[in-house]
């Protein structure tokens, strides 16, 4: 494929993914306010547009118009760098997520339904999310404020700890699929989804994913009752919006990975005329991802926050040993059957 066509195709795909992603983030946030509102016997936003559907636009305008404050005692460069780093890294992880099994025809070339197809996609996602810690750590440190520093210390130790459980939980399905490529892992689930033989790994992954994305019940780095707003206390306007964006994109990423690795990705009943056959896999994929996103909101509306020592003890003394045991049993069974 000539270089120019390659760049053009990549550009178009990036544009489409970026548009879908940002729209999704805006509306998850609206959905979250609506659903959590319903759970607390409120109605949520209803004023802007029909059923409050234009609320995200109003929020965006508000973020842009707010005063952009940089504290005098902040480390200027790192203070500016960290929100950009958070947002960039979260978007980077999305590039290897495949959303369908087939190919699309663009500029006379068949191209897979993902921005780039690499052999070690899962490893890439783990690597990029592990870098995401820097955004939080540097934000807290460079703000030069007590609450921010405490929040980022909590965030860093929490993310480093739960990353371990997250990675170990994914090894079970990787052993079953025999590949690190997300595409191959999904194709290996043609007959049964990996959630069936790897139910324990699925639960561990789900728990660790909540902690990785700093969501309730593991949102200690931004526990508003104790820390103001945690690591982003000093941030305002669009800089704050970037952290916000990063958190929601990370939610989408871990939901996509859970769908691809445990719920069979785009596999599902396919029937009907050719057009329906082409669209249905995409529909299944989106529905499964939406299920996880709903789960995030549901949990937020129902569970209280962990205490910090409980959080660390749970990660190291429960999740990590369980994940290691799961790897041992899985590899033993796969080895015996082979």
């Amino acid at each position: 494929m000539p270089n120019a066509t390659f760049f053009l195709i990549s550009l178009v795909k990036c544009g489409v993914v970026l548009f879908v992603l940002l729209t999704l983030v805006a509306y998850i946030q609206l959905a979250e306010r609506k659903i959590v509102g319903r759970m607390q016997s409120r109605v949520g936003p209803t004023r802007v547009g029909p059923f409050g559907l234009l609320q995200p636009a109003a929020d965006a305008i508000k973020f842009i118009l707010k005063e952009d404050i940089t504290p005098d005692s902040a480390h200027k460069f790192l203070y500016l760098l960290s929100p950009a780093l958070s947002a960039t890294l979260s978007m980077l992880a999305i590039t290897v997520i495949p959303i369908g099994g087939g190919t699309v025809r663009l500029f006379g070339q068949n191209t897979p339904m993902q921005i780039t197809d690499i052999n070690v996609g899962l490893l890439f996602i783990l690597g990029v999310t592990s870098l995401g810690v820097y955004g939080i750590v540097l934000a807290g440190w460079s703000s030069n404020s007590k609450y921010s520093l405490l929040g980022s210390l909590r965030g860093a130790s929490q993310m480093v700890s739960y990353e371990l459980a997250l990675g170990l939980a994914l090894i079970g399905p990787i052993i079953l699929a025999g590949s690190l490529s997300l595409r191959h892992i999904v194709e290996a689930q043609q007959h049964y989804w990996f959630i069936v033989p790897q139910f324990l790994a699925f639960l561990i992954y789900l728990t660790a994913a909540f902690a990785e994305t700093n969501r309730i019940p593991f949102d200690l780095p931004e526990a508003e009752g104790e820390l103001g707003a945690g690591y982003h206390t000093e941030y305002s306007a669009m800089k704050f919006a970037l952290f916000f964006l990063a958190e929601y994109i990370n939610m989408i990423t871990v939901s996509c990975v859970a769908t691809l690795v445990f719920l069979g990705g785009w596999h599902g009943p396919v029937f009907g005329p050719a057009l329906l056959r082409a669209i249905l896999p995409l529909v299944w994929f989106v529905l499964k991802v939406c299920f996880f996103l709903f789960l995030y909101i549901w949990v937020r509306g129902t569970l209280p926050r962990f205490r910090y020592d409980q959080l660390m003890a749970f990660g190291w003394k429960v999740l990590v040993p369980l994940a290691l045991g799961n790897i041992l049993v899985t590899s033993l069974i796969v080895g015996l059957l082979a």
């Binding site: 052999n119 890439f124 870098l131 540097l138 860093a156 130790s157 990353e163």
Partner: peptide
């Protein structure tokens, strides 16, 4: 060498250096 490249990021940049930065901050 895709595997080595991403393990390098995951282990060195994502874990070991985070601990360095952590200690410097503390």
């Amino acid at each position: 060498a895709e595997f080595i490249a991403f393990v390098q990021i995951l282990v060195y940049a994502g874990a070991i250096m985070v601990l360095f930065v952590f200690v410097i901050m503390l």
